[in-house]
Computed example of a mutant assay.
Amino acid sequence: MIPSCHDLEKENSYHMMMLGMCLCLDKDYEIISNREVGKGRDDLILKAKDEKKTSFVLEFKYLKKDKKALEKALDDLSNKAIQQIKDNKYDYGLKGKVIYIGLVHHGKDVNIKWEEK
C-alpha cells in the first residue's frame, strides 16, 4: 500500500511514514525519532551501529501554503531544514560520517537537499 499525497498533508504524517519505512533498518541503525538533542528536537536520526558506516539526520518540513514560486519555496525550506539541523546540533553524539537531509513536501511536490558534515 502506498499513501496518497492526500494522506500526507502535514509534516507529522510524512514523518510517520518515513519512520515506518526506516524500521527495517534497525539491524544496522539505531532509529531515533523526536529526541531532545542539542538545542531542539530532531525529526529522525539513523545512527549507524558501526561507526565506519554513515549516519543520517533528517529534518522534515511541510510547505503549508500554495505559493506562486513553489519550486523556490520548496528549495528555500529544504535549505532551512539543513540549517536547523546545524543550528540545533541534532548531530550531537554521532561519530564518523554524517549526512544532513532536509526533506520538504507540498502535495505531490518534493524537494530534498543533503549535505555531508
Rank of each mutant, 00 (worst) to 15 (best):
I31V: 09
K47W: 01
M21L: 14
S55K: 02
I45W: 00
R41C: 14
I31T: 03
M17N: 07
A73Q: 03
M17Y: 14
R41H: 09
M16K: 13
E71S: 12
K49Q: 11
K61F: 05
K64W: 08
K64Y: 04
K80T: 08
N12A: 14
E30Q: 12
R41W: 02
N12H: 08
K27D: 15
K61M: 04
E71C: 07
K49V: 08
G38R: 08
E59K: 02
Y14A: 12
L58K: 00
A69Q: 06
A73Y: 01
A73N: 01
K67A: 09
M18P: 11
A69N: 11
A48E: 09
D66G: 11
C22K: 05
N12P: 01
C24Q: 13
K67R: 10
K67E: 11
F56Q: 02
K61T: 08
H15P: 06
H15V: 06
E30I: 06
M18C: 14
Y29K: 05
L63F: 00
K64T: 10
A73F: 01
K61P: 10
R35D: 12
A73S: 13
R35P: 03
L74P: 03
L19I: 09
M18S: 12
D26S: 15
L70K: 10
K68Y: 02
D50R: 06
M21W: 14
G40V: 07
I45T: 03
R35T: 01
E71A: 11
K27T: 11
G20E: 13
K65M: 02
L19F: 11
K80Y: 11
A69K: 08
S33D: 05
K64Q: 07
I45S: 07
K39R: 15
K39T: 00
L74V: 07
G38I: 04
F56A: 02
K72D: 13
K80F: 08
E59S: 05
